[in-house]
Simulated scan of single mutants.
Amino acid sequence: MIALSTVQSSNAASSKELPSGLVGVFVGATSGIGKATLLQLAKYARQPRFYFVGRSQSAADEILPQLNQINADGKYVFIKADPSLLSVVDEVCQSIQQNETKIDILFQSQGTLDISTETSEHLPLIMALSYYSRMRFIANLLPLLQKSPFGRAMIVMAGTKEGPINANDIAGKRILPWKARGHLCSMITLTLEHFAKLAPGVSFVHNYPGFVATPLAKSMKGVTGGIMRSVFYFTGLFSTKNYISLEETGERHCFLATSSRFESKERYGGSSGREVAVGSDGVVGSGVYIVDEVCESGGKDVQKLLNGVRQEGTHEKIWEHLQSEFLRVTGKSTIQ
């Protein structure tokens, strides 16, 4: 466990170590973990330029004054958009490309627990937000991340909770509900590993935030949603000590976004003298990190599971599936 005091000390130091003019893109930052991280990072950054993407203008109107109060030297731009649509993701990325020559941090926490809705692009909403749109943002913005001396892409989902993948159902349309999280998390981590091969100068973090009180449960619909909300309520009622505050989760995600512990493979280069985390493949400093709610790397069990999936060649099938969906929906692999 990395103590909160250690996290806070690292974050405070980052305000001096990171260059001014930090450019960050936050998707899903109008509430919950994304908002908490955006506000905390604004506190530590010097003259930052932050873009945050979401659907709620009213939520953004509440956040903008807070950002300016926290750090009046920063520039904050809200982009009103629905990130569940890949075509919209492309438009957002194009607008950012027109204004920036690099991106230092790409932070994505968009998501839903709505398992019944399908988008107009014929993707399940839960998968569109949790996987496809996140990977599309990375694919589109990877060139700008590569131009940063410490580019980092972060995914908030359930790193360290990876599970078996059904190679015959990559899209997860027939996956049993209790196996869906592990399937999705392995897809995310293995896709990040592919991006890391394309861009070894960029680091990638897939984390599990733990139990954090966010509006996510409200997105569950129907009878199933009602049952799950009841479970969440009673779990919270009797286990509130297990919940992580928004302030703490904001601090921890700032740490994941800025600490040299999670350096890219190229930047680390096997050098000694610095404490660098173990990557998703079990190798120190390999550039893709899966971490839990206390910022510790995934253990040997999950490393073994992922290695088995790689040996079966399933990681290649995941990439092929992602590319086919990109082409089906948008007609091109990226906006480049």
Rank of each mutant, 00 (worst) to 15 (best):
1 M>F: 06
2 I>N: 06
2 I>L: 12
7 V>I: 07
9 S>W: 01
11 N>Q: 11
11 N>R: 02
15 S>K: 11
15 S>N: 09
16 K>H: 08
22 L>R: 00
28 G>L: 12
33 I>H: 02
35 K>A: 07
37 T>A: 12
37 T>Y: 05
40 Q>N: 12
41 L>T: 13
43 K>P: 03
47 Q>K: 15
53 V>W: 01
54 G>W: 09
55 R>L: 12
60 A>T: 06
60 A>G: 07
64 L>N: 07
65 P>Q: 12
70 I>R: 08
71 N>C: 13
71 N>W: 00
74 G>P: 00
75 K>S: 13
78 F>N: 00
79 I>S: 07
84 S>Y: 01
86 L>Q: 03
88 V>L: 02
96 I>D: 05
97 Q>P: 00
97 Q>M: 10
100 E>T: 11
102 K>A: 15
102 K>Q: 11
105 I>Q: 01
109 S>G: 11
110 Q>T: 09
112 T>V: 08
116 S>M: 10
119 T>K: 02
123 L>S: 01
123 L>R: 00
124 P>Q: 14
134 R>V: 14
138 I>C: 09
142 L>S: 08
143 P>N: 15
146 Q>N: 11
151 G>K: 00
151 G>D: 03
155 I>Q: 04
155 I>C: 10
158 A>C: 07
159 G>L: 06
160 T>K: 09
164 P>S: 15
166 N>K: 12
168 N>D: 12
169 D>H: 10
172 G>H: 04
178 W>P: 01
179 K>N: 13
179 K>L: 14
180 A>G: 09
181 R>S: 10
181 R>H: 06
184 L>A: 08
184 L>I: 13
185 C>N: 09
186 S>G: 05
186 S>V: 08
187 M>F: 04
199 A>G: 05
201 G>W: 00
203 S>D: 06
209 P>M: 10
210 G>R: 10
213 A>L: 09
215 P>Q: 13
220 M>L: 14
221 K>Y: 02
223 V>C: 10
224 T>L: 13
226 G>I: 05
227 I>R: 08
235 T>L: 04
240 T>G: 15
247 E>Y: 04
247 E>V: 15
247 E>I: 10
250 G>A: 14
251 E>L: 12
253 H>R: 11
254 C>E: 03
262 F>S: 08
270 G>S: 08
272 S>L: 12
274 R>G: 12
276 V>A: 04
277 A>V: 06
277 A>Q: 03
277 A>D: 03
278 V>P: 02
279 G>D: 01
291 V>R: 04
293 E>S: 14
294 V>M: 09
296 E>S: 15
297 S>F: 01
304 K>H: 13
310 R>D: 05
315 H>V: 15
315 H>T: 14
317 K>Y: 01
319 W>Y: 09
320 E>I: 15
321 H>V: 15
324 S>H: 11
324 S>Q: 09
329 V>Q: 01
330 T>S: 05
331 G>L: 12
331 G>M: 13
336 Q>F: 07
